[in-house]
């Protein structure tokens, strides 16, 4: 099942027939993405799930405009503001030489904007009020991830890009951080693209999941996740959650019994 890019009046970004070929050091051509089309709708969280090396991160870099596709087009819709992305990575990736406040300020600084109020508001949302003057090394791993959340959102991005976020966080902290991130995403109604190989996290975060094959990355399935828009921590214990995980495993061609 290959979903075509659907005409949708409220799409924020449209990827059409995009392929990406890399040339390795030994001058071989490697096809990372093969004819990928997708449509990101306003206010949804779209997950792209697939095995390691399937080109998920390449897709995010293309969306962010860090790389150009070899063929195909990427259409970015300017909303009320020019198209901008916010990034959350596998690691917190904070600047260890900056205080928490200055880390969150970074995107505004690069864009030449001033918005003290938004910094304060986001630090409050991620429950880090009072930590403004601390340095990253003084914070726990979980707190550092929350700084990264605030930094990804401070400049009101058109799309939040989540590149396997929360990798390497211990399981219990991870569930709490997932819930917190999801709550913030819904509270400020940001559109997000999330790439992961974590089935549980894919279902928990998503309104829609696209399944990618191993290299070359091709979209081989799509699942609409019709769970309540507010994602409670207890969602994981519900039958519907299990059912979606199972469907996703099937789509990934993983054993389900």
């Amino acid at each position: 099942m290959v979903p075509e890019a659907i005409e949708s009046p409220n799409s924020v970004l449209r990827v059409e027939h995009v392929s990406k070929t890399y040339t390795t050091i030994s001058r071989e051509s490697v096809l990372a993405l093969d004819d990928v089309s997708l449509d990101i709708r306003e206010n949804e969280v779209l997950t792209v799930i697939g095995p390691s090396g399937c080109g998920k991160s390449t897709l995010l870099r293309l969306i962010a405009g860090l790389e150009e596709p070899t063929s195909g087009t990427i259409e970015r819709q300017d909303g009320r503001a020019p198209f901008r992305v916010g990034f959350m990575f596998q690691d917190a990736s904070l600047m260890r030489w900056r205080t928490i406040y200055d880390n969150v300020k970074l995107p505004l600084e690069v864009l030449g904007k001033k918005d003290e109020g938004e910094i304060v508001r986001l630090l409050k949302m991620v429950q880090l009020t009072g930590f403004e003057r601390k340095y990253p090394f003084e914070l726990s791993g979980g707190m550092q991830r929350r700084v990264a959340m605030a930094r990804a959102l401070v400049h009101k991005p058109s799309i939040l890009l989540l590149d396997e976020p929360l990798t390497g966080v211990d399981e219990l902290t991870k569930e709490a951080l997932q819930a917190e991130l999801m709550q913030i995403i819904r509270a400020i109604n940001v559109t997000a693209v999330h790439v992961t190989h974590d089935i549980d996290q894919a279902v928990y975060f998503s309104d829609r999941v696209l399944v990618m094959s191993a290299r070359p990355g091709k979209i081989i399935g799509e699942i609409d996740v019709q769970l309540p828009r507010e994602r409670k921590l207890s969602l994981r214990t519900e039958q519907a959650f299990y059912d979606y995980c199972k469907r996703l495993r099937q789509a990934l061609r993983l054993p389900t019994d």
Binding site: R61, A64, G65, L66, R84, V85, F87, F89, Q90, D91, S93, M95, L106, P107, E109, V110, L111, H155
Partner: peptide, 22 residues
């Protein structure tokens, strides 16, 4: 950290900004 460079460049930063800030 290449992530930091990606972050800055995705916001339109040039080499000089990357040099000074990262």
């Amino acid at each position: 950290d290449t992530n930091l460079i990606h972050l800055l460049k995705s916001l339109g930063a040039g080499e000089l900004t990357v040099f000074l800030k990262v």
